[in-house]
Amino acid sequence: MSASTVMVVLYLLLAIMVVAFAVRTIRIAKYPVHLRWELSPVPHEKGRGAYGGSYLEEFEWWTKPREKSLINEGIYMFKEIVFLKALWEHNRRMWYFSFPFHFGLYILFVMAVLLVLGSIASLLNLPTPGIGLVANGVPFLAGIGYVLGGIGALGLFAGRLFSQRLKPVTTPSSFINLGLLLAFFITGVLAVFSTDNFAYQATVFAQAFVTVYFAGEVTGPLAIHLIVAGIFLAYLPFTQMMHFVAKYFTYHEVRWDDEPLEAGSKMEAEIQELLQQTVTWAAPHIGADGKKNWVDIATSPPAEETE
């Protein structure tokens, strides 16, 4: 198939992905500051994170310096992201498939980065160790990534089909997500094993892609795989599969957000503004009349119920 066609389709799909991804991420980030809702353990609590303790264990905590350990937080995140530790501890049977699936994805991500860097390196005529790494690394990573990911996705798909436990919370989109992923892995395996010198073909395409140079050919299986990958990436930001972005926020901005309010802080100013908003909840005891704001309501007694 002509590389140009594949490239155009891919540019379009990736554009959708980038825009949707950004919109959704910004939306999460832009929610207003919320009330504290932290949950132990909070790993950045220095010396206490391991057993779930917090600075509130200190006598007159506000007189003491708050000691945070970003290293502990980093270690926690590393284990969680790379090994899916929470799943390992609390849902082992799912982990057996979810881990290879996610690990396969990570490997493929590394492979894609390597391809792009390699093609840039060769375009710039940089010395060759990088090129060798690409030539050997890409097929190796691709082989492992697609197979691991495929096995994992297959297991998860089967779980969705057969597990009584998962059934109540399994929706059509669970199947579409995993179905697309399966298609991605299977077409990937086919592309790797049916393409002569996969690394070379992939590098040539990556170079064309990076330089927007419309020429050349890609083999059928590789073309199909690239388009499936593009469709998947464009679809991803519209689904729960954005959980890896959400997870950053659920941890950092909810579970681990134990920042006390400081007088005169930016947060205090933001909250004072939020408290000025008009409330329209309708239950009688709230006493909202379309004009009162949060402060008015919180500083007045419950309105009489009129039945």
Binding site: I28, W37, Q240, H243
Partner: peptide, 17 residues
């Protein structure tokens, strides 16, 4: 509670852990 609520409503993957 808007941010924690929206995160919890939109990102449950249904693993039943």
């Amino acid at each position: 509670f808007l941010q924690p609520l929206m995160l919890s409503l939109e990102y449950c993957i249904g693993c039943q852990t």
